[in-house]
Design a protein around this nucleic acid. Structure first.
Lengths: 224, 224
DNA sequence: CAAGATAGTGTCTATTTTACGCAAAGTCAA
DNA sequence: TTGACTTTGCGTAAAATAGACACTATCTTG
């Protein structure tokens, strides 16, 4: 490959990496890909890649995610930019990390060209990771937990229609403790961010539950 | 100048920009420099500059701040990374923005080589700015106000020793509304983040005030 | 039609937040 | 020296919010 792009001063490479969370099998899980190329060939890593010279950062994150995992259309938010000079053995690479959330139904994996595999991992069962990706994931998790307390970010894990019990289960998984059903219901309704669909969902041999939808699915509201 | 650094793929340039806030003359003010070189020559802008190829991002922000304004030793936190492809007319430039806070006493300006001038501007009296710096400042301000509510970030504006009235004045300026003195005192002491110095400060023709200091000046605690 | 399961509601208590009155310790001028 | 003035410092009562808790409703299945 010819080195054809020259500058008066050295330039770092810039990548995006994406931490995608979902709730699956009653656990918080995240998406990793297995690297097909060196460095760290065969190691698991966050999806991501180099930013095109005319490409916006978030656009790059979405494109790489789609290419490597087949996933599109999810909530994405910039997390932090990692730039330690030695974080990539090849050359100076600065990575703009994003974190994303989606209900697992919207995330159908199909391993694509850039990755030999893509898979979900429970957050407490992570394999060894490439680069400083463990650090990135740790920060993303802290941000997620923090945002639980002052925003409606958890709604991003929900299907378009959901019951209050399902929503409560998500909060219980994320917070790691059981919540009182009646107080949870009062609290979440008082936010005025979800509304009844008018439909019922019958799920087992018991009373059917009302279903709800998020009023502004694109917006994460700041509460409190 | 010879173009001597070549890559197989085009690389963006990476800069840092710093939004430094202080409280001066009973107002929230921020630090700008006047640009000596094109583009936007003569226009006011945030201090900042290109990241050295072996330089950490925060290190770069601190170095540029020191070179352009003579300021060192202040609280710095990464804010956001701005990467719109057309945000710089010269070439693709991705900027990692930081925001910084300090008491104005620690910030003695001495305009240095890279800038023909550096000056404080009240946030509501900003001049026209270079690049997308207005957008960066807006985000920094929002972050500052948000952090007021769940962290001890405002303590970063204080001198090493201060009275509760002075601290209250800072909160009133930032929040834009008066606070009840007695409730403020109870609240701020209950945080357990400041301690009495044992000294008194006499300031006018009235009772002298006890002075306090921040217990962990380097740490911004998350509260609530 | 009884048993079992989850959905849905109200009330009472504890804790936190907010409102507000008053005494203390200085300076200054008569 | 003493009273007027100014800011500091503290406590208590009321209001609002968060938490604990018991019972009824509606469905399926045997």
């Amino acid at each position: 490959m010819t080195a054809s792009h020259c500058y008066a001063y050295p330039h770092p490479a810039v990548t995006t990496d994406v931490v995608v969370f979902t709730i699956r099998e009653e656990r918080l899980q995240l998406l990793l890909i297995r690297r097909r190329n060196p460095p760290y060939r065969g190691r698991w890593a966050l999806p991501g890649g180099f930013v095109g010279i005319d490409e916006d950062l978030e656009e790059c994150a979405k494109r790489e995610l789609a290419e490597e995992t087949g996933i599109g259309d999810l909530f994405l938010e910039q997390l932090y930019t990692f730039g330690r000079p030695d974080r990539d053995p090849r050359e100076r690479v600065i990575s703009v990390a994003y974190f994303g959330l989606a209900p697992c139904s919207r995330l159908r994996l199909k391993a694509a060209s850039d990755a030999s595999a893509a898979a979900w991992f429970p957050l407490d069962r992570l394999p060894e990771l490439a680069f400083d990706h463990h650090e990135i994931i740790q920060l993303a998790h802290r941000r997620l937990v923090a945002k639980l307390h002052y925003s409606t970010i958890a709604f991003q894990f929900m299907e378009p229609e959901f019951t209050l019990s399902e929503l409560q289960a998500v909060y219980e998984i994320l917070r790691g403790e059981p919540l009182d059903r009646r107080n949870f219901r009062k609290w979440v309704l008082s936010l005025d961010q979800i509304e009844e669909t008018g439909e019922l969902r019958r799920n087992g041999n018991h009373r059917p539950a009302r279903t709800y939808r998020v009023r502004h699915p694109q917006r994460v509201a700041i509460i409190r």
